[in-house]
């Protein structure tokens, strides 16, 4: 793939991600917000692919799009009486949030463009899945196991919290 197409896809994907993210935070309809989030997550997966992180792109699609988003939509549907409600907090004005975000944006931009990044020279793209597998079972074995336990705990905890208490009669 030559430079033009990579640039084209990068711009396309980032624009999709940013615009749908904007929609997520601005819309008044929860279900629509969830679907906009779908586009954002998918575009980010595409961006991972451009970054030669093939495995992560797949994981992003599988877990975020296939798992978390479905979970969120389930959540919305299970609590459906609220999805027409105004999503905005009336008391907190959008204005202050905007001010904070703009200040942070300025700071970040200064950091991003003001820093002399040590860029790596080679740009060869190589598959990363096997190396990730190796590193997870060697150098990052302990964090990996801890993460597994965390997931297990989260599953059990979620079940425990969400279960309906059976009233004893």
């Amino acid at each position: 793939m030559n430079g033009f197409w990579v640039n084209f896809f990068f711009i396309l994907l980032s624009l999709t991600a940013i615009l749908s993210a904007l929609y997520v935070v601005l819309t008044n309809n929860l279900v629509r917000a969830a679907f906009a989030l779908f586009f954002t997550l998918f575009s980010v997966a595409g961006l991972y692919a451009i970054l030669s992180a093939d495995f992560i792109a797949v994981v992003q699609v599988m877990i975020y799009v296939g798992g978390i988003l479905v979970l969120i939509i389930f959540g919305i549907l299970l609590t459906r009486t609220v999805f027409d409600m105004s999503l905005y907090d009336k008391k907190m004005s959008k204005f202050w949030a905007g001010v904070i975000v703009v200040i942070m944006a300025l700071i970040f931009l200064k950091v991003i463009f003001g820093t002399d990044w040590l860029v790596r020279s080679g740009t060869t793209i190589q598959p990363v899945t096997a190396r990730l597998g190796n590193i997870f079972l060697s150098r990052y074995l302990l964090p990996f196991e801890v993460a597994s336990v965390l997931l297990l705990v989260a599953i059990v905890g979620a079940l425990f919290i969400a279960r309906r208490e059976v009233k004893k009669r």
Binding site: D89, M92, W96, I100, I103, M104, I107, K110, V111
Partner: peptide, 20 residues
């Protein structure tokens, strides 16, 4: 919760500002 968020993020912004 939102108030806590504002306070937390506000402090974060302050720290970032001082650093930058």
């Amino acid at each position: 919760v939102q108030a806590y968020l504002y306070i937390g993020i506000g402090i974060l912004v302050l720290v970032l500002l001082i650093n930058v």
